[in-house]
Write a protein that binds this DNA or RNA. Structure first.
Lengths: 263, 263
DNA sequence: GCAAAAGTGTTAACAGTACACCCATGT
DNA sequence: ACATGGGTGTACTGTTAACACTTTTGC
C-alpha cells in the first residue's frame, strides 16, 4: 500500500518526547498615578508556577507535549487556548532545546515559540499562571528582570556572544526557560523593523504615544517623538476619534493601516 | 534521587521520531570559458538521491534521525561530517516540519537547519550525494531551479504570502524538502546584512569580484560594483597579494577583517 | 497660569543609488 | 590596439538623528 522499505518497523528506534514552550508577550498599563502623567505600558510575559516536580514551585513557560494527531504548532495553539482563551495567534519559532539532561524526567526535546497578544483579549484561566513585567538592562552584562504583580522578582543574567547567549544566572526559572525567554525578547526586538508585530500588542485603536511607549518598552530605551512619528506614519491612519480626560491636549486615536500584501 | 512526580513513567506517552534535515550551501565556479572572461560562482546546495523507499530515486536533503546521546544540533553535525567530511560548521534553525502524513513511515518530525561551507573543504563521500546549482527567478510566482552537474533539472514553484511560502510545485523533491530549501534560501538572503556569513562560502583569500558575484548569486540580481565595494570595505582588508593570469588588470586579494566582538 | 503631553518644522549627517571615468593586463 | 575587468570619484536622493518650537487640554 505504501512506498516503504520491506520489514520497516519505526518502533525499532528510540524516540524522544517532544514538547512546546511558548513565550507569550503582552503590553499592559498600570493605572494612572496622577491626572497629568501618562502611565507607561510595560512589556510582560506569561509564566506559570510549577505545581508538580521537577522544579516544583519555580516559574516556567506555558507549554506541553505534542501528540500524534497534531503538528507542533497545533500543540502550541491548543496550549495557548487552554491557558489564555485566545486562538489563532501567529507563532514564531525561536529554538529547539535538546541539551542532554535538560529535563530530569528523561529524553525530552522542547520547541520554543513566541507570540504577541493584546492584553485585554486574554482571560487567564489557571490560578498558577500570570503576567510578569519585563525590564531590560544592557549595562556590562545583559540583565532581564521579571516582576510579578505581587512584587516577586526574578533576575536573569547573560552574556551576548555573537548570536548565542550564555546564561550566567537563570534567576530561578525552571528548565532552560530563561534561555528561551531571552531569545524571545531578542527576536521581538528584531521584529520591530516591521511595525505590524507591535500592533498585535495594542487595541485596534491606540494613540501614537502608546505605540511609542510600547516600542520603548520592547527596546529598553527612549525614542525621539518627532522621528518616531515620521517613521510610523505610513503604517497608521487616523480614526477621527481622540482620547480626552487627561490634563493635557487630547491625542488622536489611530489604527493600523492595511498595506499592500501582493508584491 | 531525582525531583520527579511519583509513579512517573515517560513511556506512558506516545512519542515521535525526530530527524534533522540540513540545507548545505556552497559557492563554486565552473572552469573559465575564455582567457578574458571571469567565471561566475554559482550558489549550490547539497542533495542526495534516495536509495530506499519512501520516495526512492527522488532528491532529498541530507539528514538523519537523532538519538538519545545527542542534541539535535549534534545529530546535524554528525550527519554533516558523515556526508561532507566537514565538522564544526555553525548551524541555523530554519523550521520544524511536523505536518500529519509528511512521512509515510509514520510519526516523524523534522528539524530543518542550514549552513554554509567553502566548496574546496568538502569531500563528498557518498555516491548518491552531490551539488546542485541554484537559480532564482521572482517573476510573477517564485521559482527556484536545481541543476545537477549532469544537467538534470528540478524546478520548484511557490507563492510568497507574507512570511509563509505556499508550494505550488515541489519539483520532484522528496518529503517536504522543497519547502525547507526555499526557507533556507530566504534565510540566506536575509543573512546578507552581516557579511560574515558570505565569507564562509569563500576561501580565506578572495577577490572583491568573487565576493560580489557570490552576493549576486545569492540575491539573484546584479549589484553596482562601486557601491558594493564601499559597503563591504569595512569588513575586508588587503592581503598584499593579487591574482594574475587573466586578460585584464590583476585583482587584489582580500581577507575577512576581524571585527569588534564586544559591544 | 501652568504642567504635561500632542504635534510640527528645520537642519545636519549619513547611507544608498546611479553613473562617468581612468587603470592595468594578456593576447 | 583592445576587450575585459579592476578600481575611484562624484553628484543626487532618501533616511535618520537631534533639537527648537507651537498647540491644547484639566486643574
Amino acid at each position: 500500500m505504501y512506498d516503504l522499505p520491506e520489514n520497516y518497523d519505526i518502533n525499532k528506534y528510540d524516540r524522544p518526547s517532544v514538547a512546546v514552550d511558548i513565550v507569550v508577550f503582552t503590553a499592559r498599563k498600570s493605572p494612572c498615578e496622577s491626572y497629568r502623567h501618562l502611565s507607561k505600558p510595560m512589556l510582560s510575559v506569561l509564566m506559570t508556577v510549577r505545581t508538580e516536580p521537577p522544579f516544583k514551585g519555580m516559574l516556567s513557560l506555558p507549554g506541553g507535549f505534542t501528540v500524534r494527531t497534531e503538528t507542533i504548532e497545533q500543540t502550541a495553539q491548543r496550549k495557548l487556548l487552554e491557558k489564555t482563551g485566545v486562538s489563532g495567534l501567529p507563532l514564531s519559532l525561536l529554538c529547539n532545546s535538546s541539551a542532554l539532561g535538560r529535563d530530569p524526567r528523561g529524553w525530552i526535546i522542547s520547541c520554543g515559540y513566541s507570540t504577541l497578544v493584546e492584553f485585554s483579549k486574554v482571560k487567564i484561566s489557571e490560578e498558577t499562571a500570570g503576567w510578569y513585567d519585563i525590564s531590560l538592562d544592557y549595562c556590562e552584562t545583559g540583565k532581564l528582570t521579571l516582576t510579578s504583580d505581587s512584587g516577586a522578582v526574578h533576575t536573569m543574567m547573560f552574556r551576548q556572544t555573537g548570536e548565542k547567549n550564555e546564561i550566567i544566572d537563570n534567576g530561578g526559572i525552571a528548565f532552560d526557560h530563561a534561555q528561551i525567554i531571552i531569545k524571545g525578547v531578542a527576536a521581538l526586538q528584531n521584529s520591530l523593523k516591521d511595525p505590524d508585530s507591535v500592533f498585535r500588542l495594542l487595541p485596534t485603536e491606540f494613540t501614537l504615544s502608546d505605540l511609542q511607549m510600547t516600542y520603548e518598552a520592547i527596546l529598553g530605551r527612549q525614542l525621539l517623538t518627532p522621528n518616531f512619528r515620521r517613521k510610523i506614519a505610513p503604517y497608521v491612519e487616523e480614526t477621527g476619534r481622540s482620547e480626552t480626560g487627561a490634563g493635557h491636549r487630547p491625542s488622536k486615536l489611530y489604527r493600523a493601516k492595511k498595506r499592500d500584501e501582493n508584491f
